[in-house]
């Protein structure tokens, strides 16, 4: 899918969500247009720009796994209690996150994106926080869908 790096409404939605639930980080990842890999397009609360260069393989890491399964995923105490190796979770390593919660974004009935929130310490996300993430994910789906159909402002 096309680049959303300059799409301000998506950046604003991530920043708003981060403040609303008091998390350290919020990020949006989207599956690439020509490959099944997943890239990070937006981040709020990031400590560096590494996320812009990260390409996650389909099915790998938190973003790849959420897209391949279509289900939310939680990490409570990274790198403990994870499926696979720590190296399979590049965004957690890049941002020094110890906990995360991620949900899929669906376009045309196919999961193609991920909204992730994370903290730099061990943390269990409350049901309230998870609901806020789900609301923002629904909002982002609509915004991005409109953006791709050329109905929203932003740079493709």
């Amino acid at each position: 899918m096309r680049n959303l790096r300059n799409f301000q409404p998506a950046a604003d939605a991530c920043a708003k969500l981060r403040i609303e639930i008091g998390s350290d980080f919020a990020g949006l990842a989207i599956q690439n247009e020509n490959t099944p890999d997943v890239s990070w397009h937006q981040a709020a609360g990031n400590r560096n720009d590494k996320y812009k260069k990260i390409n996650v393989r389909f099915g790998k890491g938190i973003a790849g796994r959420v897209i391949s399964t279509g289900r939310p995923m939680s990490v409570v105490h990274f790198p403990n209690d994870i499926l696979g190796k720590a190296l399979d979770y590049p965004i957690m390593l890049a941002e020094n996150l110890q906990s995360a919660y991620a949900v899929p974004l669906v376009f045309n009935q196919v999961q193609r994106g991920v909204l992730l929130v994370g903290n730099r310490q061990e943390h269990i996300f409350t049901e309230e926080a998870k609901e806020a993430v789900a609301r923002t994910a629904a909002e982002l789906q609509e915004l991005i869908d409109r953006f791709y159909r050329g109905e929203a402002d932003g740079e493709a």
Binding site: Y51, K52, N55, V56, L93, A94
Partner: peptide, 8 residues
């Protein structure tokens, strides 16, 4: 490696 971890 750079593509995976964002480290140049």
């Amino acid at each position: 490696y750079t593509n995976t971890f964002g480290i140049e």
